[in-house]
Amino acid sequence: MSKIYILVVEDEPEVLDVVVRDLSSLEETFPIEMAVSVKEAREIIAEIEENGDKLGLAVCDHVMPGEMGVELMIDMQKQPFTERTRKVLLTGQAGLDATVEAVNHARLNRYIAKPWDPEELVKIAIDELTTYVIEHEKNLLPYLGILDAERLNEVIRSRGTVSDH
């Protein structure tokens, strides 16, 4: 079975550390990859694709040296492999422009302002990953214990009904 990855892109190691730690409850089901730049993120994405795995969620800082987070997200939106990846922008910058651009061009799913509430971050990750698995996975049972069970059950029920006929 192919794995569904979470990718965290953040140029500051201390911040990257805490984001990953906050998401670590999901790690056993959704392996977490870390990148400190957009360049590194692209390499990781390519590798995930090569291995035949999937990228379910990308949590990305915006202001980074080199390319900006939004640029990566727009790019991901253009690639078939990452088009359906759930995209979350995590930024400390109050600027509206980047957000508008991300929403309009990158189909950004969520925007989280720094500093964030860890429960909120995990909830958003669960929400987005639930949407992702519903769209991509046939067998939803393995995710019942970790993602949004209510939504998953509903889909499982409706799928069951469909297959009954």
Binding site: E12, V15, D17, V18, G92, A94, K114, P115
Partner: peptide
């Protein structure tokens, strides 16, 4: 805001 929010988050 960015400069302070990053370390504040960490």
């Amino acid at each position: 805001a960015h400069e302070i929010n990053n370390p504040a988050s960490a």
